[in-house]
Structure formats: C-alpha cells, structure tokens
C-alpha cells in the first residue's frame, strides 16, 4: 500500500518542482552560504565595479544569467563530459555565455559597457561560477542546478549592490547615477535632496573620497562579514 502511494507521488511530481528544498537552494546562498562573505569565491572580478550602484546592478544581472545558464547546460551535459577534460568543457560553456552577455550589453548600453571594461570578460574566471559547476551541477539534475546557480548569483549580486549603495551614497552623494532613475541625495548644490550649503543641520557634510577608492570596497565587505558573523555565530572562524 505504502509503496503504491510513493509511486503515485513520484509520477505526480511536476516537471519543474518548486517546493521547500528548491526554495532552500535559492535562499541558502543569500545568507548562510553566501558566495562572497562565506564561501569567499568570486571577489576577483567585481569589486572594482561597485563604486556606483548602476554598474553593480548590471554586473549582478550578468552574473546571475551566466551562473544560472552555465549550471543548467553543464548539468544537462554532465553524463557526457569525460572527467579529464571537464574543466575545459566548463570554461568553454562559461566563455560562450559571457561572450553573449558582452555583445548584448555592448548593443544595449554602450556607456556602461565601457565602464565595466574588462570586468565583464572576467566573469569567466569568477571562481563562483566554476565553483558551483564543480560542486553542484556536475552531480545534480538540470532544474535543481539552475536554481542553485540563480541562488548563488543572487547572493553574489546582493552583496555587490549593498556595497555599491554604501559607496555611492557616501562617496558621491547620489544613487543610481548614470541610469534613467538617477537620485541626487546629498550635495553642495540646489539639485540635491539635502542641500548642504544652506542646510543648518548638514552644513558640515562633505563627500568621503575614501569611498570612491577601490580599497573602500574591501573595508565595507570586511565590515559586512563582521556584522554577519556576529549574528550568525556558526560561521565564525575557529582557527
């Protein structure tokens, strides 16, 4: 009796299930298993782009796309890839997807493409993409691998955008500069939301140029890790 019930359940499972397990694949990388602050993968290619929010958002979308689809394709091919050449096969899949992203971005938004320069190409060697392919997609079914890839891309993008927001507000006083929805938050002229020249309370404020430097991104991520580990004590480094 029990056996037939199980069988029925299996046959009734939808093509693309989205239950508790699948949701965990997406939410886990956002905090407990965050690619940047916990797995320490993929810091390479992206910190230099976070001085403004808009390029960070573009970068995050590109990475989500590349991780998601490379996981999907690798997982589809996982039974046909010989073990010895798997790295090369994975790199070719990733490199083709990155080329697609690069050409699309160049067509859609040339200024941002110029701003991101080599960092779009460097998504190829972004360790998080390879890391997920090796650790997850080579051993799991396509749909689950796709979700895992999307989850990790989102966890990565979350940190990227958070760093971008902090750096842009304190460094330039704007938000989403260069995009159609540019906000001017704090600055010395009339166009800004808080005008520091005739505001009695914020008269002392000047933009912090340290935030524009690449080094600031390191400090901010260091502090993010500090905050996260204070709340999530199981992540603390015991060594």
């Amino acid at each position: 009796m029990a056996e037939t019930a199980v069988k029925e359940k299996v046959t009734r499972e939808p093509m693309l299930p989205f239950g508790k397990k699948e949701r965990k694949l997406i939410t886990d990388p956002l905090n407990d298993n965050n690619p940047i602050t916990v797995q320490v993968l993929g810091i390479c290619s992206a910190l230099a782009v976070t001085s403004l929010v808009y390029p960070s958002v573009v970068m995050a979308i590109a990475v989500v796309f590349v991780i998601g689809f490379s996981s999907l394709f690798t997982s589809m091919l996982r039974n046909y890839i010989p073990k010895q050449v798997r790295m090369i096969v994975q790199l070719v899949i990733i490199a083709s997807l990155v080329t697609v992203v690069e050409l699309t971005l160049r067509y859609l938004n040339y200024p941002v493409y110029k701003q991101l320069s080599v960092y779009i190409g460097l998504i190829i060697t972004n360790c998080i993409v390879m890391g997920r392919l090796e650790a997850f997609s080579m051993a799991n079914k396509p749909w689950r691998s796709f979700l895992d890839g999307i989850g990790n891309g989102l966890g990565y993008g979350l940190i990227l955008i958070a760093v971008g927001v902090v750096r842009e507000i304190f460094g330039k006083g704007t938000l989403f500069a260069g995009s159609p929805i540019e906000l001017k938050i704090i600055g010395p002229t009339a166009g800004y939301l808080i005008n520091t020249t005739d505001n009695a309370f914020f008269g002392w404020y000047v933009n912090n140029n340290l935030m524009v430097l690449p080094a600031a991104a390191m400090f901010i991520i260091g502090i993010f890790i500090w905050i996260q580990r204070s709340y999530n004590t199981k992540l603390v480094d015991v060594s």
């Binding site: 600031a216 260091g222 890790i225 905050i227």
Partner: peptide
C-alpha cells in the same frame, strides 16, 4: 574580535 577573525580581518588588511 571573534566575528572578525580570519576572513574579515584579511579583507580589512587588504584594504
């Protein structure tokens, strides 16, 4: 501080 040990410190040092 325990939460900053290892990785967090490495980031700040790099900065």
């Amino acid at each position: 501080p325990p939460a900053l040990r290892g990785l967090g410190m490495a980031f700040i040092l790099t900065g």
